[in-house]
């Protein structure tokens, strides 16, 4: 899945997470840049990063910048928001 524009999903409500997926400059080589801010960083920071990377990997996203602003979302919610943001950041059908 190729990231061509900014895609955003989620909110900053308690229990939710806001995810922004954006393209990176093409020169630097394919890479995932992950930026995580979470109110439960100390308790779940590693788990959140693992779930985000796993979800992106399942979608075939290998080159993107991903910003996570987490308000204590559960894993299923993080997966859904990442997936939605990634889809919104890809070229729509028929678009070049």
């Amino acid at each position: 899945m190729k990231i061509v524009r900014n895609g955003q999903a989620g909110t900053l409500e308690s229990g939710d997470v806001m995810v922004i997926v954006s393209p990176r400059s093409p020169e630097a080589g394919a890479q995932l840049e992950l930026e995580v801010h979470s109110i439960v960083e100390a308790q779940y920071g590693e788990e959140i990063r693992r779930v985000v990377r796993e979800t992106l990997s399942e979608l075939g996203v290998v080159d993107a910048r991903v910003t996570i602003q987490d308000r204590g979302a559960l894993d299923y919610c993080i997966r859904a928001r990442v997936e939605a943001a990634a889809h919104r950041a890809t070229a729509a059908d028929g678009e070049k």
Binding site: V40, A42, Q43, Y44, G45, E46, E47, L74, D75
Partner: peptide
């Protein structure tokens, strides 16, 4: 099961 096991300080 819902939240995962939190890392304790």
């Amino acid at each position: 099961q819902m939240a995962g096991t939190p890392k304790r300080p």
